[in-house]
Structure formats: structure tokens, C-alpha cells
Design a protein around this nucleic acid. Structure first.
Lengths: 221, 221
DNA sequence: CTCACTTTGTGCCCGCGTTCACAAGCGTCT
DNA sequence: AGACGCTTGTGAACGCGGGCACAAAGTGAG
């Protein structure tokens, strides 16, 4: 559940501010969800709060970290040392939360051997060997779209079963592999959609442009 | 709807391969959803397919682009010229889909005036002026977490009502502002969660660690 | 023209996730 | 100690989105 990670993030912030206890109401307000939903989510970890008081912040943080598997650090392999790949290699949001970018891979010989933000760039063919050596458990695909599926296959073949994909293609994988998709362009398109919708509403009033076109087509027939 | 963007992406790929028509079954398989869901999604744009044949690819592409507001190019302002910000400025997935990174902003004087991937870096204080000049309609927040809310407020004050936020904080905005959140660390944590879950399952068998702890607590009482 | 086949569009049903509401439990104040 | 107030945990109702299945509509063959 992605919300558990959000709760953890907010709890960590509260802990830094010296809070020792928090109620579901407070925490829910902080992350912008209903308090009942939050309690039900947390009940997934068993009873961690005390009635009449709330949740013990450090205790809940520990419990969430355990549940999310953050009690041990994870090594991630990053494939694609282009713009995005290099930036992700240096993104401190990863290291700050216990994810170490252990290796970078690329196909372009010109990039191989260089060091980006302290991380060695390997050829993608050495992926199985390097990943095994470094105990990599998570793979990140940051290649152009055409290479993504092949790279993913190589990651899976190397025994990696968790993949974060930035390439704008749907990866097909075996059942046991967990893929999470982040499509940056699609996110912008959704925002663009809202812009268009609002523009149409102000011009056409009430009836958004979609309905007008449908009505028009109907009249023609 | 984010799926509309995915459909468009796949349709564009089909069009490049010379396909002129596509059935809901084919397209649904390509994007990995049910065909009924896809048809229902597309019915949102009015009747665009012809029964017995399928959907006309170029026509549907045009219709989707119109709905998503991609008929005109959008200028985006990118705040935060750190690792992530610079990478996003050069990400060709944006420009390829009609989103132009028109301006970069940062607070650090050392970065101001430099040019990243052909884009000028401005001081964040000049945000309102520059955004107005360049007709910016979308703002991207790629700053560290502590600055994100303030930056977002400045974007909103500059009249921008669509924000893509990469900072790991929940932005609070007026009602009319559309915010989309991308938390890269949270994505990795979800993957880590699945790893932990699977590890617990193989050790404890059947009963995942969560249930065992709950059962244990119950037994203690 | 008619018939058989294909594919869309959609009404209906089901299951999941969210919300509501409340009993149970814990701390505190008197 | 007892009563009161606060907060959790959860059963029950609700709503929404997804899947199924079929009528409507179009195409092509005979």
C-alpha cells in the first residue's frame, strides 16, 4: 500500500519535531485523508495505538519501517545512464530512505567505466554478475522506450523481482515480478486535460466541449 | 483520467507502425486492461468507433489529443535546478509530447543565469513575471521538501493552476488548483514492501509475518 | 437482399475500498 | 475508586469502478 509510505514520511517529520504521540485525527489531517481510513490502514499492522491517547510515534515508525522492509537497506540497480538515470543516481531522496544506488548500467560504450555521483557505470551485459555480487533486489528502468522491455527481461533473468519503470511502455513480466510504472509525460498530460476541461467549461459554459461534440454528431445523423 | 494518456501513447505507436484501424480487444491487450473497460473509457469521448470494424487510429489519436488538450503546446515552469530539476529540463519525453520546459527557477544565486539544456535559470522571485511573459500553464516542483510549499504558493500566486510535485510533501492549495504527486522514494518503498512480504511468506510459510505478530499479541493478552 | 459474422456501446451485477457510527478500552480528575 | 472524556478498532452501509453479457449496428459474402 502506497499510503503506508506516506504515513511513514509524515510520522518521521513529526518525530523530528519532537512529537511523541499522535492521534489518527492529527495524522490524517497532515496527509489529507479521512481519519477512519488511516486507522483502518494502520490496523493492517495490528493494534499499535492506545485508546484514549493515540499512536506512539517512534513505535509506529519502527513498525512501519519493519512492514515496509526498511529495516535493512536495499541496493538498487539503475539501468540507463541518460539524463534521467544520472539524476536518479544522485537523488538524495533515495539514499535518505535507505535505498542505495549500487550500480548503473548502460549500453553506450562511451558511458561505460565512467563514475556518476560515486557510482560505477557498467555495461548492461554484465548486469547478472554485478547484481548478484552487490545483492541488488530492486531494478530501475530509465532507458528510452524501445530498450525497456529487453532491459526488464535481463533484470528478471538476473533474479530481480521488483522493478520501477520510467519508460513509457507497459512491461510484460512473469507473474511473480512486481512492476511499478511512473510515466512523467502522462502526468503532465493529465494536468493538460484539466486545463483543457476548464477552458472548455468557461467558453461553452455548463456543457463541456465533449458533450457538445456528441450532441452535434447526433444532430447530423 | 490517466488511462486516456496511456491509450494515446499506445495508439501513437500503432499509428507509426502503419495501423489504420484497431479493435478494442487489440488495444486493450496492448495496454493490459480489459476490453470492456477500454471501451467504456473511450465512450467518454462520444462514439468514435464503428461497430464491426473497430476504431480509426488517426481519428482516435486526434480526438484524444483534443480531449487531453494536446492540440496546443504547453509551456511548463520548472522550479528547482538541482539534480532532478536539471534532468527533467532535458527529458525528451516532455518535448516529444508537446510540453516545452520554458523556464527554470532556483533560489541558489550560484545557479542563476546559467543555461541548462538550452533553458535559462531564473531567480525564483522573478517567477510571476517570467511565467506571465512565457504563458506558462503548468508548474513543476522539483525542490527539496522544505521549500516545496512556499514554491507552490508562489506558483499559485502567479496564476498557475496545475502543479506536478516531486517533493515528498503534501501540498495544500486552493480548491481550483490541480496537484499531481510523484513520490519516487515512496515507489521504492512499495517495492520494498513486496520484498519483505515475500521474504516473510517463505520463512513463516502461509501466514505472513503481519498476522503472526497480531496472533502473538492476541495470545499474550 | 439476406444472412452470418464482427465489434461497439451499455445496462446490470458484483466486489472492493471508503465512510459512518459506535462499542470497547485507556487515562485522568475528583 | 468511580465516573467522565478521549481515542482506537471495527462492524455495517454506501458508492464507485470493473467485468460480464447482450442488443444494436455495421461489414462482407452468397
Amino acid at each position: 500500500m502506497v499510503r503506508l509510505a506516506i504515513y511513514l514520511r509524515e510520522l518521521a517529520a513529526l518525530a523530528e519535531n519532537g512529537a511523541t504521540t499522535v492521534s489518527s485525527e492529527e495524522l490524517a489531517a497532515a496527509v489529507g485523508v479521512g481519519s477512519a481510513k488511516l486507522r483502518k490502514d494502520l490496523s493492517f499492522l495490528g493494534s499499535q495505538g492506545t485508546r484514549g491517547v493515540g499512536y506512539d510515534v517512534p513505535r509506529l515508525v519502527t513498525r512501519l519501517e519493519l512492514t515496509l522492509g526498511l529495516d535493512r537497506a536495499h541496493s538498487v540497480a539503475l539501468v540507463g545512464a541518460g539524463n534521467l538515470g544520472r539524476a536518479l543516481a544522485g537523488y538524495d531522496g533515495f539514499s535518505r530512505r535507505g535505498f542505495r544506488v549500487a550500480a548503473l548500467f548502460d549500453r553506450d560504450p562511451a558511458r561505460i567505466g565512467s563514475v556518476v555521483r560515486g557510482v560505477q557505470v557498467h555495461h548492461v551485459d554484465s548486469l547478472p554478475v554485478v547484481c548478484a555480487q552487490l545483492r541488488v533486489s530492486i531494478g530501475v528502468v530509465a532507458t528510452p522506450a524501445p530498450s525497456a522491455q529487453q532491459v526488464c527481461d535481463q533484470l528478471v533473468a538476473a533474479g530481480i523481482s521488483c522493478v520501477l519503470n520510467f519508460a513509457p511502455v507497459m512491461l510484460v513480466t512473469p507473474e511473480h515480478v512486481e512492476v511499478r510504472q511512473v510515466d512523467l509525460a502522462a502526468e503532465l498530460q493529465v494536468l493538460s486535460f484539466h486545463l483543457a476541461r476548464r477552458a472548455a467549461a468557461t467558453i461553452g459554459d455548463g456543457a463541456p466541449e465533449l458533450d457538445r461534440s456528441r450532441a452535434g454528431a447526433g444532430a447530423i445523423r
